[in-house]
Every structure is written in structure tokens, then in C-alpha cells.
């Protein structure tokens, strides 16, 4: 097997380990919620209480997640766990723009109630575009125009035409 083939295999293994972790997390969460559902008081007016449907659903999740966990444990070779951290780090490095984008979006949404929709959007749109683009004077100019149109322009459109007022902020 050549190096690229081995790399792909190792990445796939790391993916399986990540999935195993997700099954276990889902299993634990749904087991906890199942117990919480049994504690919801029942009503004397009906045969099934408010907790019955959640019990069925969370019970189902526990069952399926258990099968998935056992299946994954059986499939994953022993060495995969040791390589998992390194593989995950490589995966994250390759997709660094995804994390920057999600981070920018989180910051943007947290800033909206403080700075108001138009200003927060202007900053978010311009910054994220500049981060993602091949930086040339022309594209930076386009980004600036787009940022103004979709922040202040959108705010104006909603307020004037649809009478929906986007958050103004406290600043």
C-alpha cells in the first residue's frame, strides 16, 4: 500500500473513532433524558402522560446507540485510538476556515444585541469576506459595497417595507 492509501485509511479510522465518541455521548445524554422523562408527573385524565412519548423516543435512541457502539467497538483496530489525536489535529488544521467562519458567526450573533443589526452585520460581512477572498483591491471594494448593502440596506428594507424592526442595539 502506498502512503496516500495509508493516510486515507488512517483518516477513515479516526472518523470511526469520532463516530464511536458521538454514539457514546448520544447514549449517555439520552439515558439521562430517559430518566428525566420518567419523572414527569402523569395526569389522571389520560392513559399516557406527557412523559410517555419522550420515554419511547429516548428508549429507542438508547437501544440504537448501544447497537452502534458495540458495532463500532468491534470494527475499530486497537492502534486507531493512539493515532486519534494526531489525526483529529490534522483534520482541524485542514479545515481551519470552517472554524474561523463558525467563530465569526458566533461573535456576530453575540454582537447583534449590543451593536445593533446594521453595524454588527457590516463588520461581520466585510471581515469574513476579506478573510475568505483572494485579496485584490477590486474584490476588497466589492466586499465593502456588499457589506453596506446587506447590512444598512437590508435593515432599511425590513423597517420601511415589511415593518419588521431588526435589533437596534444599545450603543
Amino acid at each position: 500500500m502506498n502512503d496516500t492509501g495509508r493516510d486515507t485509511d488512517r483518516a477513515a479510522e479516526a472518523g470511526e473513532v469520532a463516530r464511536l465518541i458521538s454514539y457514546i455521548l448520544i447514549l449517555l445524554a439520552s439515558a439521562g433524558l430517559f430518566v428525566a422523562a420518567t419523572k414527569i408527573p402523569t395526569s389522571r385524565f389520560e392513559r399516557l402522560g406527557p412523559g410517555a412519548f419522550p420515554e419511547i423516543v429516548f428508549g429507542g435512541i438508547v437501544l440504537v446507540a448501544l447497537i452502534a457502539t458495540v458495532d463500532a467497538l468491534r470494527k475499530i483496530p486497537r492502534g486507531a485510538y493512539g493515532r486519534f489525536t494526531a489525526q483529529t489535529a490534522a483534520w482541524v488544521r485542514k479545515r481551519y476556515l470552517v472554524f474561523i467562519t463558525l467563530g465569526a458567526m458566533t461573535a456576530y450573533l453575540l454582537a447583534i444585541p449590543i451593536a445593533g443589526f446594521p453595524i454588527a452585520s457590516l463588520v461581520f460581512l466585510f471581515t469574513l469576506q476579506v478573510i475568505l477572498m483572494p485579496r485584490r483591491p477590486r474584490s476588497i471594494a466589492i466586499a465593502a459595497v456588499v457589506a453596506v448593502v446587506f447590512s444598512f440596506g437590508l435593515n432599511w428594507l425590513f423597517a420601511e417595507v415589511f415593518t419588521v424592526f431588526l435589533p437596534r442595539g444599545v450603543l
Partner: peptide
Amino acid sequence: PKWLIVPVVMTCCVV
């Protein structure tokens, strides 16, 4: 281009 449409559609989703 993607660098323009991704942030713009995100803003539309927020609105």
C-alpha cells in the same frame, strides 16, 4: 464567488 455568497447568505439566515 464563494467568499461573497457564504457571508451574505449567512446574514440572510440571521434576518
